[in-house]
Amino acid sequence: MKLFFILTVLLLQIKAEAQTSTLAIADSLYSIGNYSNAINEYSKVGGLSSALQIARSYNAIGNYEKAITQYQYVVQEDVTNQLAQFELGKLLLKVKRFEEAKSVFTDLSILNEGNPEFQYYLGEVYKELNKADESLVHYKNAVSLDSTHLRSLFQLAKHYTIKQERDNALKFILEGLAYYENDVSLINLHGLVLFNDSQFEKAIPLFEQVLELGEDKDYVYQKLGYSYNKNWEFKKAKEAYAVLLKRDDTNSQTYFDLASVYQKENKLDSAKIFINKAMDAQKPIFANGYNQLAYIAREQKDFKIAFKFFEMAHQEDKSDARIYFNIATTYDQFGSDLQKKLGYYENFLKHYPNEHPFYYETARKRISELKEEIHFAKE
């Protein structure tokens, strides 16, 4: 009997040592990215720890369905395993199984109310489900649990920046930057908030910092060029637009923006050159080009040419009330036919009745004056 007991202990010890050896091999294979062979070795060991490693291995090689099945097995066997649930929830979110992900992260947030990550990921799930109000609640919950939770602060700041709610956006941007002053995403949002608020002088150093931090993107140069122009820094504006044109010389908007710089400098011949280049770059869309050429002609007091370009712009885009209003006012400046002047203003009110009050009142007042002039001219 004693001999049998000793043999049993020895067999168990040998089995445990074999499992330990197999597990060590599996862990070694996993650590160097040899996931398929690691799965085979973990399968020999068995147990929940090995099942979790198999799930991770399937996840690593992109076999997401098998990974989910393994994670679900681990969670089913041990409902207190928050790590397995957390990894399962993130994977479900990744493969767009949002309702299932929501269920997992909701359970986790109940298990561990003080974890900001679970709140953040609930926010991510609700964002994907197009439930913005719910997502904001969970991002704010994450921040209340951890005031330095940058990803939640960024999502809140981004939401309010897009909505152009300046004060709310700045609140979360500045909270994030107080913790990490070189967060390029938050600095970029800070610049955009100020840009959208027409605070171009304050936006400039932020966009410059974004570039210095390696975010060398076209939209940054576009915002910088526009801000430099608004801040009367014409040389820097031209340099920003030159970078964009070097990268893409077919973008008509960059030519238009550059023309605006020269126009503001009163270098009208150069402005014309870039407007024409813009129109060549994107020939189907001429309205903006004709409109800008008309403004330049009007600045040069050549009202007949301005009128011609405004008419051409109107032919390209009849939805823009400002273009037709400029047709009316420009003809009013050089034309001699009172009936024709009256007709332009009446057509404006007829076709664009709900435009800006200034346009409406100007047209209405001018119609009254012209009718009086026509009446006295007949007498």
Rank of each mutant, 00 (worst) to 15 (best):
L3W: 09
F5I: 13
F5L: 15
K15I: 13
E17Y: 10
N34L: 14
I39Q: 11
E41N: 14
K44H: 05
G46C: 10
Y73L: 09
E77K: 14
A84M: 03
F86Y: 15
E87R: 13
K90Q: 15
L92Y: 09
E99K: 13
V104L: 06
N112F: 03
E113F: 05
E113T: 08
G114A: 11
N115E: 14
E117L: 15
G123S: 14
L136C: 10
N141Y: 01
V143I: 12
S147I: 03
T148C: 04
H149Y: 12
R151T: 01
R151V: 00
L153V: 07
T161A: 05
I162H: 11
R166A: 11
G176F: 06
Y179A: 12
D183S: 04
L189T: 11
L194C: 10
Q199Y: 07
F200Q: 14
F200L: 11
K202P: 06
A203L: 13
P205V: 00
L206F: 12
L211W: 08
L211T: 10
Y221E: 00
G225F: 01
G225W: 01
G225I: 02
S227G: 05
Y228L: 04
K230H: 04
K235I: 03
K235F: 00
K238A: 05
E239H: 00
K246L: 07
D248V: 00
D248M: 01
S252Q: 09
T254S: 02
Y255H: 00
S260L: 06
V261E: 00
E265T: 08
N266T: 08
I275E: 01
D280K: 03
A281I: 07
A281Q: 02
N291E: 07
N291S: 09
Q292P: 10
D302A: 02
K304R: 11
K304A: 15
K304D: 08
A306W: 07
F309N: 15
F310S: 04
F310D: 05
I327W: 00
Y331S: 04
K340V: 10
K341Y: 02
E346W: 06
Y352W: 05
E355D: 14
P357V: 05
Y359K: 08
A363R: 02
S368K: 13
L370M: 10
E373W: 09
I374K: 10
H375R: 13
F376I: 08
K378S: 15
K378E: 13
K378V: 08
